[in-house]
Amino acid sequence: MQWLGQFNYYVFAILMMAGIYIAMSRGNLVKKVVGLNIFQASVFLLYISSGKVWGGTAPIMADGLERAISNPLPHVLILTAIVVGIATTSIGLALIVRIKEAHGTVEEDEIAEAEILYEQELAKLDAEAMTQARADAAAAGTTGGKGA
């Protein structure tokens, strides 16, 4: 099986690069999550490939099984990793839904704009509240002064 060498690992590396690239470069949040999925799934390939024995068989005992058995440990680890992956995906998608509701968009650039708007609005409200409070305080001060 020498001709195959590390082909699986090469594919893993390429998929990993693609995943990172999608997750980081795309402005669309959904696509980011898909990129993360690809990235995580590529790691599964690394682990599972490392456990394989060519000509071997799955680590499930059966009567009269005389072939080599592939390493079960990476399988266990990846089962856990898949679960972690779906958990992350679901939280990420839920966050996307909330972001869309809050800002009306799922594109990163537009979200940044929306947040700047939001901050401006907060500042405006603060300023209004402050002048209002100053006026109130001044009014209270004058009336209080008169009263005293």
Binding site: S50, R98, I99
Partner: peptide
């Protein structure tokens, strides 16, 4: 609402980081 975006950003980076750790442990 800005916390949502921050959390999402952390989610992407945190997952990248955790998966890097996973790759390292795997190697």
């Amino acid at each position: 609402p800005r916390a949502l975006t921050a959390a999402f950003q952390y989610l992407v980076l945190g997952t990248l980081g955790a998966t890097f750790i996973l790759i390292g442990v795997g190697l």
